[in-house]
């Protein structure tokens, strides 16, 4: 589903590579943790997969597309197959929960009846049924992240990228979010989650890829956060 072939990313000439000759294969329906300290290149890998950045070396394939030859005007089509969740939720404060999720469909020009059925379904899936009329500031952090996940998933993308989705949440709330991501993963969605949270990684027992200084130092199925710790 996602394939990195010897991918490097150097931001400024002469600077250390943010991503250094990474080769990685993520299968359809897989759940993968990307771990490593701050600045190890986790977020850059996610940005590369989204084509927010372009690699300085190597090739990237996402959902069957070669990103190096993908035309600029086709980038939106790529992104419709990828949902993204961030640490800081990125909700629109002046829109209700329902409208925040509906926004993702409206901007793709989806018909109204489709929005009216899909959004409540998705809110139900993430455990926010009945909260559609609330505003983001009226919700807890965990609930806000559920809204963000609903927005990322409402268009049923094949891939979900999550950049430290539990970074702002307490451990108990994080467990709830992880259960939700696991449920989404079981619908067949490929999930790549960058995280610092060792407890979560140890609990989930999924594939773990560890980055250090932009290079892969470990790739382990059913792994834990860090063998060295």
């Amino acid at each position: 589903m996602i394939r990195f072939q010897n991918v490097s990313k150097v931001y400024a000439r002469g600077a250390r590579a943010a991503v250094d000759r990474v080769t990685l294969d993520v299968e359809r329906g897989e759940f993968l943790f990307l771990v490593g300290s701050s600045g190890s290149g986790k977020s850059t890998c996610l940005r590369l997969a989204l084509r927010e950045e372009r690699p300085t070396g190597g090739k990237i394939f996402v959902a069957g597309r070669d990103l190096s030859t993908l035309r600029q005007w086709k980038v939106p089509h790529l992104r419709r197959q990828i949902g993204v969740v961030f640490q800081d939720f990125r909700l629109l404060p002046n829109k209700t929960v329902f409208d925040n999720v509906a926004f993702a469909l409206q901007v793709l020009g989806k018909p109204r009846h489709h929005i009216m059925t899909t959004v409540p379904e998705t809110l139900d899936l993430v455990g926010l049924d009945g909260k559609g009329k609330r505003y983001p500031h009226e919700l807890s952090g965990g609930e806000q992240q559920r809204v963000a996940i609903a927005r990322a998933f409402v268009n049923r993308p094949a891939i979900l990228l999550a950049d430290e989705p539990t970074g702002n949440l307490d451990p108990a709330t994080s467990v709830g979010i992880m259960r939700l991501l696991d449920r989404i993963n079981r619908t067949g969605t490929t999930i790549v989650m960058a995280t610092h949270d060792d407890e979560i990684v140890d609990q989930m027992r999924k594939r773990v890829v560890e980055l250090a200084d932009g290079a892969i130092v470990r790739d382990q199925s059913r792994g834990v956060y860090g063998a060295a710790r």
Partner: peptide, 17 residues
């Protein structure tokens, strides 16, 4: 910015944004 940022992420076309 916030709105356009999300529009880009969910794959709205350039023209639409």
């Amino acid at each position: 910015r916030r709105e356009t940022g999300i529009m880009r992420l969910v794959g709205a076309s350039n023209l639409f944004i």
